[in-house]
Design a protein around this nucleic acid. Sequence first.
DNA 1: TCAAAAGTGTTCGCTATACACCCATGG
DNA 2: CCATGGGTGTATAGCGAACACTTTTGA
Lengths: 237, 237
Amino acid sequence: MEDLNNKADKQLYCYKYPHPSVTADCVIFGFDGYKLKVLLIKRDVNPYKGSWALPGGFIKIDESAEEGALRELREETGLEGAYIRQFHTFSAPNRDPRERVITIAYYALVKMQEVKGGDDAAEARWFAFDELPQLVFDHDQILRKAEQSLRQQIHFEPIGFELLPKQFTIKELQNLYEAILDVRFDRRNFYNKMKRLEMLEQMKETVNPSQKKEAFLFRFNREKYEELKQKGFRLEF
Amino acid sequence: MEDLNNKADKQLYCYKYPHPSVTADCVIFGFDGYKLKVLLIKRDVNPYKGSWALPGGFIKIDESAEEGALRELREETGLEGAYIRQFHTFSAPNRDPRERVITIAYYALVKMQEVKGGDDAAEARWFAFDELPQLVFDHDQILRKAEQSLRQQIHFEPIGFELLPKQFTIKELQNLYEAILDVRFDRRNFYNKMKRLEMLEQMKETVNPSQKKEAFLFRFNREKYEELKQKGFRLEF
DNA sequence: TCAAAAGTGTTCGCTATACACCCATGG
DNA sequence: CCATGGGTGTATAGCGAACACTTTTGA
């Protein structure tokens, strides 16, 4: 299946067999302290101009899918080197009405506080999961699958911390895990467990988000985590 | 990025921008009662003719990646409707020296006993993980990633049973989990735990694989498992 | 009669869970 | 002074890990 380039003639790229287009789409997760959110953009091109969609675009011929996803992410949020993870590739023959498009889907975990508007003029907005708008193509399916993958992955890697600011209260951490896993924990047990695990480093500073008692700030200690993991430890809830 | 078909001219498919080829590759896992194995084929085409590779091939323009993977699997092993799962898509720009090829990788769990030779003339052989040959392209990387994904997935789904015959002894089940997770369990604790979980159905028949005491055969009870799962239970080891 | 493998039972320690309690703050 | 939220301690039940015992069978 050789690449029979035939550029002289109208700058076309020609192949003996039909080739699909390949895109990278990004499900960008954020956390506002209470709820898990996802960043969507309003399409400024047809088809479905004006509809909400996942950020994404065509993969350039000399970049990997991951590089493509990171590029899209940067263009959309201004973030460099965010945590991204490939979770599924969607390839139903008719998922795009124009031509065959296969999309390699990534989810990104970003700190909402650090996201400024991207270069792109397109409107972007954070949505909670219970107020999602209608999405184009199969993007709702992609979103569901991303959520499911995140939920699984969080059992094996401390990825939750990517969604929190550098320093956070244990209450915030608990809210995050509750939002992702859709469960409720006893506040005191969660607190005790985190202290016992010793992968959080307590700061001297406190913060006062509720106007009530001051709360300690913590920082994730990756070295300590890796050390624990070595000894066959898994992050479980 | 419209599909500028231009078939009149030498049956070529032409596009305004370069398009990659897309293949589906299959990591076929089997279990012989003691060790996890993987099915490889000897390439009968260039490049790397005669080298060992993962079974796979180009996705047809009107089939999904999953359909493609199932087709490859059928051609290679003669198996219909085996358990397959997409685990990663490999897209490094130079992973194939000929042209840009993106591959959507699946792993398949098959019962070794049911695998006959496929239609394809190509030679196929089962390999244990400690006797893998040199593989073409980035297939060794794909294989490693498949192993890793299987290891994770087995915590969430009872996929191990796809690798065993319909009826099996608890000893065989233990060997399987030990092989996949690379751990050792106490024989008696494993036995007790399986009995307690009640997702295995004990048969009347016994079997005598070791020429010693007779061993009971068991069958996986999917209904019971789904019931347990509903109540927030997870398959853990 | 001895070794190997299957099946069952028991004990112990850890941890998940369910709580009670105290402190600080704002209204 | 009381409602709210943060931080710490404690009792209990259940499960996992370690291991003893019995039975069956082939050599």
